[in-house]
Design a protein around this nucleic acid. Structure first.
Length: 673
DNA sequence: ATAGGGATAT
């Protein structure tokens, strides 16, 4: 919860100061004076050496605590090293090890460890203790030294009993370093050693199952949770939710969520993430509203998920509300959230806002750069994208494979054939990134769209991996663009074997036939689809006018088209359009009907209906934002171009993969898509 | 000590 986070953060800081002041009331306890404390103590200690009273331990602990708190690890370690054996105990070492863990100081931690190993029997005994062992395991694992962590853990087996906490520390060590299989194996190992798992162990095992997508093992752990002597706590219950969510068991998620005795923000977030995974984005939004109604509040994580929904729905208005929530909360948003916010803006076609956020972000990570680059690429701003890429490189951020997917896809959308090929070479030669299937798909698309189908096929033949549906699909589309009937037939045949249920492939093939006037073949494809029970996805566009989202389906909107306003607007437009030389391109209609019928048919396309609706129902200067579930129809594209010229409106249209910004009779895609 | 979130081709 955002408001609680603020309080918590304030409280922490405040509490910290209080404690620091109470440590050594005689001296002011500023960090700079830590050294003074150490020296004072050393002097005192030498004088008092040999005396064994517990009284003398107290100031020593305080000094040690104040040293570690102010990050003076070197002096803290020196202090321990100078101590007589009787003053070294679990607590002493714990304090300093804890500080080493939070500062990730392998150097000091290892010194303590080696010291313990080398010293007398007393310290050997200390090493066997669960607390110290766990701390040492944690220390080495946060510094990335898993093997050393494991060796400390293994020494455990020589002693008689192993406390659960040591197992847990080792499991966390694996989990932290992404070794999920090892974490899960450790859990089973633990069971073999007759150590009863508690809630900590459960949550770790469940997390490992979730990340490995091991739903069956996960169910087994769930059974153990139920049988356990300990009641599952919130963390275990949330880990169970996350497990079922991650493995796509949506019913279990709902059931479990309903039965939980208590839910916190994390539980709700998991449910939201699960809904998004199920593509139930509107339900996710409703759930977010319900969270607020039930005074659950939200966290940065919630907002990140919701922003992703806004980006997907081009729900700019709602996304802006989330932005306002972030500003209102008064705490600096974390980098993940800001990246999502930026992503929302660029995915809603508002590149400038995205760039403003980008400029104002103090810490940028790789995703920040990649998100902005993707934003430019899908909005057809390739000059800006290339400029940003240069900035990225000179700022010292190493581009990765995602960076190049963004650049290459941008080049393919923008028809920048040579530039795209150059980036493809550059990627491997200058940056040592070997191309993945996605990169090859982009390259094939770049070449195919430019009409270089032979070269594209050559790439497919020579690439090291097996081409999938995406690559053949892109080639098929290139055949459509360049009227390659026979090659298209060969590719389509292969595609029907790989993905027999993808309606898009059948549609493109019939497009190819229709363009060539081969109506028999068009009918043949249609019959094939009917025989196989494949339904073409219905074209659907949505547009927001006056805070309400209006949806249009191709061929629908009959009432709207009968209305007086529609007819009036249509009449006004038609005249102006004709003077601007708009002629309907009817080749996009896949039915063998006469020209007059075809031009009526294209008027029923969903993007056209949405544009008409917005023209009628929104203020004259307002930009029109439309989203569509399929690729824009070629005729609608040229129609909207002229509309933007005639009416002086900006139309921003997002189709499946990218944006078209129509302004003054031109489109940002330069008619290349 | 343990649970939830962001960028990717057609």
């Amino acid at each position: 919860m955002v408001s609680q986070v603020t309080c918590l953060a304030d409280g922490l800081e405040f509490g910290h100061k209080l404690q620091a002041n109470s440590v050594c009331p005689l001296h002011s306890s500023s960090k700079e004076e830590g050294a003074l404390h150490a020296t004072t103590f050393l002097v005192n200690n030498r004088v008092r050496a040999g005396s064994n009273s517990t009284k003398s331990q107290k100031p020593f602990f305080q000094t040690l605590k104040s040293l570690t708190r102010s990050g003076k690890l070197e002096e803290a370690v020196q202090l321990i090293e100078s101590l007589p054996p009787n003053l070294r105990n679990t607590e002493t070492y714990s304090i300093v090890l804890h500080a080493c863990i939070s500062h990730k100081s392998l150097e000091h931690g290892r010194r303590l460890y080696l010291e313990l190993l080398a010293k007398d029997q007393h310290s050997q005994r200390l090493l066997k203790e669960a607390t110290l062992k766990s701390k040492l395991i944690t220390l080495f694992s946060v510094c990335g030294y898993l093997e050393e962590a494991r060796s400390i853990f293994e020494n455990t087996f020589n002693s008689e009993t192993v406390h659960e906490s040591v197992w847990v520390a080792m499991a966390i060590a694996y989990s932290r370093n992404g070794c999920l299989k090892e974490a899960l194996l450790l859990y089973t190992d633990m069971l073999w050693h007759h150590v009863k798992p508690g809630n900590f162990a459960f949550s770790l095992a469940l997390k490992a199952c979730a990340d490995l997508n091991e739903i069956d093992i996960g169910r087994g752990v769930h059974a153990q949770v139920i049988k356990s002597y300990e009641e599952p706590d919130q963390v275990v219950n949330n880990a169970l939710l996350a497990l079922y969510a991650e493995c796509g068991c949506f019913n279990e998620v709902l059931q479990l969520f309903g039965k939980l005795p208590k839910r916190n923000v994390v539980s709700w977030n998991s449910l939201i993430a699960s809904l998004i995974k199920q593509n139930q984005v509107f339900e996710a939004l409703n759930l977010f509203r319900r969270m607020q109604r039930e005074k659950m509040g939200f966290s940065w994580v919630t907002l990140t998920s919701i922003l992703a929904v806004c980006a997907r729905l081009t729900a700019l208005h709602f996304g802006k509300e989330i932005h306002a929530q972030i500003v209102k909360s008064c705490i600096r948003a974390d980098i993940l959230l800001l990246n999502s916010l930026m992503d929302m803006y660029v995915k809603c076609g508002v590149v400038d806002c995205g760039r403003m956020l980008f400029n104002r972000m103090r810490n940028k990570d790789l995703t920040t750069w990649n998100t902005m680059l993707t934003g430019y690429a899908i909005n057809g701003c390739m000059d800006e994208a290339m400029g940003l890429f240069n900035e990225m490189v000179s700022s010292g951020t190493r581009p990765d494979d995602v960076t190049f997917v963004a650049l290459l896809s941008g080049c393919s959308h923008g028809g920048l054939t040579e530039t795209g090929q150059a980036y493809f070479r550059k990627m491997e030669m200058d940056f040592g990134i070997s191309p993945t299937l996605e990169h090859y798909a982009c390259l094939v698309d770049i070449l195919g769209r430019a009409g270089k189908l032979e070269e594209a096929l050559e790439v497919v033949r020579n690439m090291p991996m097996k081409p999938g549906g995406s690559i053949w699909g892109s080639l098929l589309n290139s055949c459509r663009l360049h009227g390659e009937v026979s090659l298209g037939e060969v590719i389509a045949k292969r595609l029907f074997e790989i993905e027999p249920n993808n309606a898009g492939n059948y549609v493109i093939l019939s497009n190819i036939y229709a363009k060539a006037g081969m109506w028999d073949s068009v009918n043949m494809v249609r019959e094939m689809m009917q025989r196989r029970g494949i339904k073409k996805e219905v074209g659907c566009s949505w547009v927001k006018v006056k805070n309400k989202v209006e949806t249009f389906v191709a061929g629908g909107g009959t009432e709207f088209r009968k209305s007086v306003q529609y007819k009036k607007m249509w009449f006004e437009l038609a005249e102006a359009m004709e003077t601007h030389g708009y002629v309907p391109d009817t080749s996009v209609v896949l039915h063998d009907i006469d020209e007059a019928m075809k031009s009526i048919w294209v008027c029923g396309h969903s993007e056209r209906l949405a544009t008409m609706y917005a023209l009628i129902n929104s203020g004259a200067g307002m930009p029109i934002r439309i989203a569509k579930n399929l690729r824009v129809c070629a005729d609608c594209h040229s129609w909207i171009k002229v509309v933007s010229q005639v009416t002086g409106r900006t139309v921003v249209l997002r189709d499946t993969t990218r944006f078209h910004h129509f302004k003054d009779g031109e489109c940002s895609c330069k008619d290349y898509w």
